[in-house]
Amino acid sequence: MSDRSYEVDFGAEEPTGAELERLTRAGAGEVERAAEAALRPKGLGDFIGQPQVREQLSLVLDAAAARGKAPDHVLLSGPPGLGKTTLAMIIAHEMRSQIRITSGPAVQHAGDLAAILSSLEEGEVLFIDEIHRMARAAEEMLYVAMEDFRVDVIVGKGPGATAIPLELPAFTLVGATTRSGLLPAPLRDRFGFTGHLDFYTVADLQTVLVRSARMLGMEASETGLQEIASRSRGTPRIANRLLRRVRDWAQVRGTGVVDLPAARSALEVYEVDERGLDRLDRAVLSTLCTRFAGGPVGLSTLAVSVAEEPETVEEVAEPFLVREGLISRTPRGRVATADGWAHLGLTPPDGTLGF
């Protein structure tokens, strides 16, 4: 199972500026990994945004610590990039325990899950990302493991098969999902705490970027970071990625400072417009308006027109475009809104906005 799960040690310190310089000399790949690790907050007090989830989770962890027991199982839901994995690591850090990390697609057999569960230690955290994609057989085994801290190992086949119960140490399961509606009710109900992560405000993202710029040792202006935050689609992961790309532009073509001119110029190079739309977003919106007169048009037809898979358009581009009010889903297909036409600087034909 070493290729499907791994442990994280929280004993390591965050790399200092001098350490990052040493890593830079050692290799770009190593410094990028160190930078990524440094940007993750280690404690709840350092986690920015999601105040309601932080407060609720703090109560769960503090109460469990006072009782001297492992916290209830935790389910974290929400769009990608909002901090579900980071919160799982924070839970382990606050519990002073190790974390075992795997993903739903990697657990395709009950034996896979049994191997992971049987190797857990007392108080350890098991984090399963995209938990809704687990195989059904493994999922049913997880029910008993979560409730009774045991698994039944089947020995033999057919009428002579025997179930041998294997006791497990008390552990905390942290599940993460981007599609909570796909979780079966029996699994969802076994979590003692459920937290939903929402998109970040520009102000919270700017706070995230201030911390990230400090951790990466880069010089940045308030207006530059605000510009990056406003184009980050409410997602810290995107904000940190854009920050590193703006830093690259500033070092190669600018003054070395992440300021407003550098942010605007770099994001133009990387095709991220003032509302955060990237190449795929604009391709979908532009095709919908210019080739299909604003719609309605079916998902498959729209995907073929932009040379992408329907799943990519539906799961990557559409959620943001719908949230921004640039397109709308109707029973007859996708349609462009008045705001979508205006964003492209186009005038909709008469009668196309009557949906």
Results as ranks from 00 to 15, higher is better:
residue 222 E to W: 07
residue 93 H to Q: 12
residue 349 P to H: 03
residue 209 L to K: 06
residue 273 D to L: 09
residue 323 R to Y: 06
residue 50 Q to H: 14
residue 156 G to V: 02
residue 96 R to H: 15
residue 72 D to V: 08
residue 92 A to C: 02
residue 24 T to L: 11
residue 277 L to T: 04
residue 243 L to P: 06
residue 163 A to K: 15
residue 259 D to T: 10
residue 317 A to N: 04
residue 328 S to T: 14
residue 21 E to F: 05
residue 327 I to V: 14
residue 29 G to L: 10
residue 173 L to G: 11
residue 212 S to C: 14
residue 189 D to N: 14
residue 127 F to Q: 02
residue 109 H to P: 07
residue 217 G to F: 01
residue 12 A to D: 13
residue 220 A to E: 03
residue 1 M to R: 12
residue 221 S to G: 04
residue 43 G to C: 01
residue 342 A to L: 11
residue 219 E to H: 08
residue 295 G to Y: 03
residue 239 A to T: 09
residue 123 G to Y: 00
residue 95 M to D: 01
residue 322 V to I: 12
residue 145 A to T: 02
residue 315 E to K: 15
residue 199 F to R: 10
residue 121 E to I: 01
residue 325 G to F: 09
residue 92 A to E: 06
residue 6 Y to R: 14
residue 30 E to H: 08
residue 143 Y to T: 12
residue 118 S to N: 12
residue 225 L to Q: 00
residue 193 F to V: 00
residue 223 T to A: 13
residue 355 F to Q: 01
residue 326 L to M: 12
residue 18 A to C: 05
residue 168 L to V: 11
residue 142 L to H: 04
residue 151 V to C: 09
residue 277 L to A: 08
residue 174 V to N: 05
residue 83 G to P: 00
residue 144 V to M: 03
residue 118 S to C: 11
residue 110 A to D: 12
residue 228 I to M: 09
residue 89 M to L: 08
residue 107 V to Q: 11
residue 313 V to Q: 07
residue 344 L to G: 02
residue 215 M to K: 15
residue 218 M to K: 06
residue 321 L to Y: 04
residue 168 L to P: 05
residue 45 G to T: 00
residue 21 E to W: 03
residue 23 L to S: 10
residue 4 R to V: 00
residue 346 L to W: 08
residue 168 L to D: 08
residue 262 A to K: 07
residue 177 T to M: 07
residue 106 A to R: 15
residue 206 Q to A: 12
residue 104 G to A: 03
residue 14 E to S: 13
residue 280 L to G: 12
residue 229 A to T: 07
residue 222 E to I: 01
residue 65 A to S: 09
residue 61 L to M: 07
residue 333 G to D: 05
residue 343 H to Q: 10
residue 311 E to A: 03
residue 21 E to K: 13
residue 138 A to L: 05
residue 278 D to A: 13
residue 355 F to W: 12
residue 70 A to H: 03
residue 67 R to S: 07
residue 123 G to K: 13
residue 188 R to T: 09
residue 47 F to P: 03
residue 267 L to S: 06
residue 65 A to K: 15
residue 344 L to H: 05
residue 81 G to T: 09
residue 36 E to H: 12
residue 335 V to I: 07
residue 232 S to R: 03
residue 316 V to D: 14
residue 58 S to N: 13
residue 176 A to I: 05
residue 117 L to M: 03
residue 58 S to F: 00
residue 132 H to R: 10
residue 279 R to W: 04
residue 341 W to I: 05
residue 282 R to F: 00
residue 143 Y to M: 04
